[in-house]
Design a binder for these strands. Structure first.
Lengths: 329, 329
DNA sequence: TGCGCCAGTGGGAGCGCTCCCAAACTCCGG
DNA sequence: CCGGAGTTTGGGAGCGCTCCCACTGGCGCA
């Protein structure tokens, strides 16, 4: 194994100089820097991660806690994970993967052993048992999602309240007087996951402000057909529908058509969904950019690592893209 | 920070004894062990990962290279990832996530810096550029999937050849004389990914051995409808179909029905797909246990890490489960 | 009694890096 | 010509752990 002293000898400088060339923590003459860099390349030197972590008290690794529970859409999670890894690399960090089932112990383990410098937690619950641990840990963390009490924590998420409201506004502006939101699977609401509730709240608030009747239904994608049928039966006057449940979108559309409703003639449909899905189905949508969220979360985490004061809460705006499922009047 | 010498003092032993208690590398009297463990708990001691890695030349971290390209089914990948992480934990290892877009450089980086002890690579291509690097690296690796030339490498995968053959056999045994395999998206074949080819080969071989006419079509899930229509038009006598393309399964079934074929009365359908999907649709299927593959891959990797001679190739058998889409005669 | 053997323990060098504390050298103004 | 400031570099302690090399005391056997 090539070590820093080998490089130093080869370049005719001291080990500390090689270290400083690599870290940039003090000024080095151009000539020396070049000589050192040449030696590094010539010898194929790679700093030993463990030695570095021991001496500097920084591992250059962040932990990423991924969820894998019912009701969450896996491809979106994966997009965020990939974006997080890619972004972390631009900050010269790697990503250690933790699953939720290790729970609180996993966080204490990787933080306590100095395996990671910081922690990114996805899919936070309203009353997440990990919150007190995260608050007490000596390493910075960022949560993707908002718990009931975010005090003392840094959280980031899409602005689902605004997204829900935008759906209602869009439908009302098109002239609909009776609208519905088809939301996440029941399991998600029962868990008290924040995003589902916030979408609902925004939708209902915006509708109420405009004096429009709004109903909200959870929806299990496997029973989309029944949900659609029930909804249309219970509310025959329904003409505008928002869907916030990615895997259920296609089954729902099929079910609406099967029940004789033409889209958009009889029913306007807007979805809160990733762009690729909405584009394919030519659906008006509020886009939820997964990569953007993963990227931003890491950026905020790195700010905290550098000691910069990060905002306690970040809400990523979503964007409404009109397509042919909600025609202008 | 609590260090090993603090524990040693608290327990009235030497630091080396604490180390040996933790590693189990030499015998310790019960009494001493108990005292040390008590002190560890009392002080909340956690060994410093970096120091450990430096002194022992083992980081207890493995790298996992995940794919995210077109044509692969994300939930299956995620299942394998989760299984790999969970299994690695049972061997007291953590998992560092690498994306493919760092390519060869990422492997050299994490191996060269001793950040990881071993490498697990998912979604291997036939002529993967990473193969020579993996062969030359000083750390063990395991590939999930088989390249064109697996010499000098350890590979593991489902036995797709057998799965394809089992599909054909099952259909032929039911009396079908003209059968088809609807496979992965064209992009997957073009990339020369092994699994798609092997399924095809097994299917065709088994059909040929039984003197039955077999056609194979790739299928882009987004154009499942057209694929189904074309296939039925080109081969009106088709009565048995195997599908090896998870996201296309439902659209295909819809398309078959839309073209007037009843399942299973007019058309027997068998799928190579995860159990949950097949169960939901009540489809006869060859199950591809994703968790099992992730678990086994890590197990083999750990064997190699321990110096045990691991088999060069491992093929995981799949299991045929008959359901109502292919009724017994 | 003397010896070898074994189980249990301690001492401490060394893993490869970082970063504090100087030291060397150059340049300038007085 | 000297002192001080600025720039560049070297020396080496120390990060927290592992594991090699002893050392000790007890036991059985000749």
């Amino acid at each position: 194994m090539v070590k820093i002293s080998d490089v130093a000898r080869h370049a005719g400088v001291s080990p500390s100089t090689v270290s400083y060339v690599l870290s940039g923590k003090r000024s080095i003459s151009d000539q020396t820097r070049r000589r050192v860099m040449d030696s590094i390349r010539a010898l194929g030197y790679r700093p030993h991660a463990g030695a570095r972590a021991l001496a500097s008290n920084r591992s250059n690794v962040i932990a990423l806690v991924v969820p894998l529970r019912s009701g969450i859409h896996v491809p979106i999670v994966m997009q965020m994970v990939i974006a997080a890894v890619t972004t972390a690399r631009t900050y010269d960090h790697d990503v250690l993967l933790l699953t939720q089932d290790e729970g609180v112990g996993g966080l204490e383990r990787v933080a306590g052993s100095s395996l990671v410098d910081a922690i990114l937690v996805m899919d936070v619950e309203m009353h997440d048992v990990r919150l007190p641990v995260l608050r007490s840990l000596d390493r910075p963390s960022v949560l993707i999602g908002f718990p009931a009490d975010p005090s003392g924590l840094t959280c980031i998420d899409w602005d689902f309240e605004a997204a829900g409201a935008a759906c209602a506004e869009h439908l009302v502006d098109l002239g609909h007087r009776e609208i519905a939101l088809i939301g996440a699977p029941p399991a998600v609401y029962e868990r008290g996951t924040g995003f589902a509730e916030r979408t609902k709240a925004g939708f209902q608030r915006a509708a109420a402000e405009r004096g429009v009747h709004a109903v909200v239904r959870p929806c299990d994608p496997e029973h989309a057909r029944e949900t659609a049928a029930d909804l249309l039966r219970d509310h025959p006057g329904l003409t505008g529908i928002a869907v916030h449940n990615e895997p259920a979108v296609e089954p729902l559309l099929t079910a609406f058509r099967a029940s004789g409703r033409r889209i958009p003639d009889d029913l306007s449909v807007i979805a809160i969904a990733p762009d690729d899905l909405a584009e394919r189905l030519d659906l008006t949508s509020i886009s939820i950019p997964a990569e953007e969220l993963g990227r931003q979360a890491v950026a905020v985490l790195m700010d905290k690592l550098n000691g910069d004061q990060a905002p306690g809460a970040t809400l990523l705006p979503s964007r409404l893209v009109a397509r042919s499922s909600t025609p202008a009047a």
